[in-house]
Design a protein around this nucleic acid. Sequence first.
DNA 1: TTTATTATGTTAGCATTTGAACATTTTGCC
DNA 2: GGCAAAATGTTCAAATGCTAACATAATAAA
Lengths: 345, 345
Amino acid sequence: MKQRTTLKQIAKIFNVSIATVSKALKDSHEISIATKLKIQEYAKQHNYRPNSIALSLLNKKTKTIGVIMPSILNPFFVKTFSGVEQIANDKGYNVITIVSHGKLEKEITSINMLENGIIDGLLISLSEETEAKQHFKHLEEFIDNAGPIVMFDRVSDSINTDKVIVDDFNCAYKATEHLIKTGCKHISVVSTLDNVGIIKLRIDGYLKALEDYKIPVNKKIINVIKPGYDFETEIKTMLDYQKVDAIIGLEEFSAVESMIIAQDRGYTIPNAISIISFTNSDFFKYTKPSITCINQHSVFMGKTAAEILISRIEQPTDTNTIFQTKTIKTTLVERNSTKQIANNY
Amino acid sequence: MKQRTTLKQIAKIFNVSIATVSKALKDSHEISIATKLKIQEYAKQHNYRPNSIALSLLNKKTKTIGVIMPSILNPFFVKTFSGVEQIANDKGYNVITIVSHGKLEKEITSINMLENGIIDGLLISLSEETEAKQHFKHLEEFIDNAGPIVMFDRVSDSINTDKVIVDDFNCAYKATEHLIKTGCKHISVVSTLDNVGIIKLRIDGYLKALEDYKIPVNKKIINVIKPGYDFETEIKTMLDYQKVDAIIGLEEFSAVESMIIAQDRGYTIPNAISIISFTNSDFFKYTKPSITCINQHSVFMGKTAAEILISRIEQPTDTNTIFQTKTIKTTLVERNSTKQIANNY
DNA sequence: TTTATTATGTTAGCATTTGAACATTTTGCC
DNA sequence: GGCAAAATGTTCAAATGCTAACATAATAAA
């Protein structure tokens, strides 16, 4: 790596001031054509590029945004990230990504690190622990010191920012309703995430559907598996001791794993047990049977969140801004892990 | 967002110079305890954080690295990225991610953008087009102007940098050998990527295994599907008109899709046709049958690449550095899409 | 001579660090 | 007690790379 070309250097070579070089490179009319030409020529040849760090210091804008997610090894977040990346790049922003691994501590230190002026704004999906402990001071601090935040998917009402969410209540309702219409009566819900707001919403939607269709609730088949418990054991026990004719998996892995366990125990899918999963993973096409799922349009969600954030950055708002919450509509993608809707509906 | 706290501000409040504040916050012995205390107290209360942009300008280090990948909607790259993110964060670096979508143009503009001093170094897996056109000027320029590059997975010998690769030749060899040992004789290779160096290496490894085991080569079942051709049609045609008893998929999707198509056409897996895939996607466990694959240890690859890059950044090398190429060992993960090894081996 | 016009330079500012310089106080010694 | 030397506390100035407002100089036209 050789010495980077700077205005100063060029100025020295042509025996002019730094300002002249700066203006010449901007093709300012103030500078004579001859001077401009030779300076531009030299700059091009030496591959001059204005130092963006210096520019950032000057403009107090870095054209960089941050994204904090609980996980990246998860199709939902990968797709969301992909949407964010696309929009950010289109609009000339760089994206700094941080994975919180569900840990509040990591979230705090990362946000503190990003609070020093490196990013113009932040996209965040809260870590499990953050939601469980309802700790949001770090977010408020960021907003105070660094710039706007847009929360997506795992959001909190306690923080006043823009939000992009999925209609979790409704889509859980729709999924449950769909299963009911295909003749299921003992519908289980399985999740590995506890204390996460969206999970509560989904379960509420599920309960509401049961209520509306006058199906009794069996709490033993609402299976939120806490950390430390073995997924397989829990599901096996449930299948052995409870009547279950459908499973709604609240995350990809819950759904596929449950299906495999059920198949191993001899249940046919979808006749003995139907399966619906949240999140549309590309791989659901390839399982046997392919898995019916709720498409949360995660790429679109990422795009939307990034768009909102960038517009907030570019046209900062006054103190009494009203923040918006955008809800992404979900769709049910019917595949072969659910039965056809019965005639009497 | 209120006004960010700066040294200047604090200095004004206590009627001291900026330097005093700076030193006080660094707990310098030059400053009296009383002054230090009140300044530190105030700084803490007002949540002062040194502006990293100003520091970057001063130190010519941003503690940020870039990662450019052809795709992010691909388990291999996601895992690699995850490894990179972990190491970078451990070492206090931020990661800026850019997806080239296989396009040279995107790669060039991104690298130019990152050449302005925003990042201290770059990790890159070349886009398909870059490899096809053998265009590397942008990379050389980056190295000249901005800092070290470490290439991973899709690398080029034309560029003198550190590299982290997979032993593509050997693992294709091993996969082919494994199939041969389980009794397969008509082994097809399927890929959707053309003009990518690693694909050539893999095919070479495959050919070498055939040669060593004296199995005749049938070029019609080496199926590199060019853009514009329909995957399904190509595979169907191959299965209908050629004798095939095994398929090696050079990327996840090639493998799963091929398996599904074969199953649809009535072939049993693994008895009629065996399947081996490159890259260990978590979902290969959940297909029926589960898919035997080559674990490329992508997370580890990402970690290794990040470690090399950061050490290059932190202890810059002289002009005549010898760069290293690290090869990640792969392992064959046997599942149910391949037969057991026959007795006579 | 005055006034534009054209080309270039000066300065301040963005936030920070750091070694040198300065001023003040304390200490030591005769 | 007086004075130099040492210690202490604080400020200055330069540096990072760049821009923008303002200033200056020289030339040409009125």
